[in-house]
């Protein structure tokens, strides 16, 4: 009985995190982006500095008419947002937030699980792009696919480097093996992982697939109402997942200078939040990369860097063992 209860509690906790964190990050993005541009951002919804802006947005989205274009492939069009969103919920289950048993579900091949399922999320964008019967959507879908193909490889290689260092594919196992000097050791891999993850989420400056000045909103052009909101939620859930994952793999997750036992989850939270801030910061600071620049960055810069990181990891691993 208590086992069932524990499982239910865990799933519930993951679900709450999944629903709350993306909103928090979205709100932070509103405010941080505004202040970085010398603006105030939302000020009215909720009274105090517009804290309820995203709730208001959600209510607005829920009220909108659910439209499927006449020429669209109805079923695929309607299914796409769910396919885009669900993988991130699944991934959250496997991310450890504290020492010991503080994880939704410990998996033997956690790193692989996380990366595999994150890759599936992109299928949602592809389905949306194809099923919308819209040229802009199709272009967006094409760009999404091209970007995924280019950036999944460096992401995998960088993650593999950490798995090599720890000698395990399990996320809690990697954290158990973590020492502080891993941070400088794996820093290149970390940068590659984070950059490739940003590209996979189609966040600026890698937002060519949704480049609003060229192709309206890419694969999501024809979406409105709740389905559109689901795509947006998927993007922000993706930020949560990417930041948490980078924190776990490269920054030591719940390890911290002090308070390792009781305050582990706080360290994890802090690292995730700082990384999420960086994601927003990058969006404000840099212009969008052109499609050929995107591909060039992945194939001529990130992949060689990731391979070099793997070589370095291998050499040091052999030396210290």
């Amino acid at each position: 009985m208590s086992d069932t209860l524990a499982i239910v509690l865990r799933v519930l906790a993951v679900f709450v995190v999944f629903l709350v964190f993306p909103l928090v990050i979205g709100q932070t993005e509103h405010k941080v982006m505004a202040h970085m541009q010398g603006r105030l951002g939302p000020m009215y919804a909720g009274g105090f500095h517009g804290w309820a802006q995203l709730v208001a947005d959600g209510v607005k989205f829920a009220q909108k008419e659910d439209i499927v274009p006449a020429g669209a492939d109805r079923k695929i069009f309607q299914l796409a947002p769910a396919i885009a969103l669900l993988p991130y919920l699944l991934v959250l289950i496997a991310i450890p937030v504290g020492p010991g048993n503080a994880v939704g579900q410990a998996l033997d091949a956690g790193v692989f699980f996380v990366l595999a399922v994150m890759g599936v999320g992109v299928l949602g964008s592809l389905m949306a792009g194809w099923a919308s019967a819209n040229k802009f959507s199709l272009l967006g879908g094409l760009r999404t696919a091209a970007q995924l193909l280019a950036y999944e490889l460096p992401m995998l290689l960088a993650a593999a480097s950490v798995a090599m260092a720890a000698g395990t594919l399990s996320l809690p196992g990697i954290l158990d093996a973590f020492h502080w000097w891993w941070v400088p050791w794996q820093i290149v891999g970390g940068l590659v992982f984070f950059t490739a993850g940003l590209a996979e989420l189609q966040r600026p400056p890698f937002d060519m697939p949704v480049a609003d000045s060229e192709i309206i909103f890419g694969a999501y052009t024809e979406y409105t109402g709740l389905r559109f909101a689901l795509f947006l939620l998927a993007e922000y859930a993706g930020i949560v997942v990417l930041c948490a994952l980078t924190a776990v793999l490269f920054l030591g997750g719940w390890h911290g200078p002090f308070g390792a036992d009781g305050l582990g989850w706080l360290w994890m939270l802090l690292k995730t939040v700082v990384l999420a801030f960086v994601v927003i910061w990058l969006r404000v600071s840099y212009p969008r990369l052109r499609e050929d620049q995107l591909q060039k960055l992945a194939w001529t810069c990130l992949i060689p860097l990731a391979l070099a990181q793997i070589a370095l990891t291998g050499v040091i691993k052999v030396v210290i063992s």
Binding site: F112, A116, V120, L123, L126, L138, G141, L142, A145, L149
Partner: peptide, 20 residues
């Protein structure tokens, strides 16, 4: 998970890319 990563995550994406 390798099956999901390689086939669902990449091969099918490549296939869809080609189809598009």
């Amino acid at each position: 998970w390798v099956q999901v990563l390689i086939y669902v995550g990449s091969v099918v994406v490549l296939l869809l890319f080609g189809l598009m």
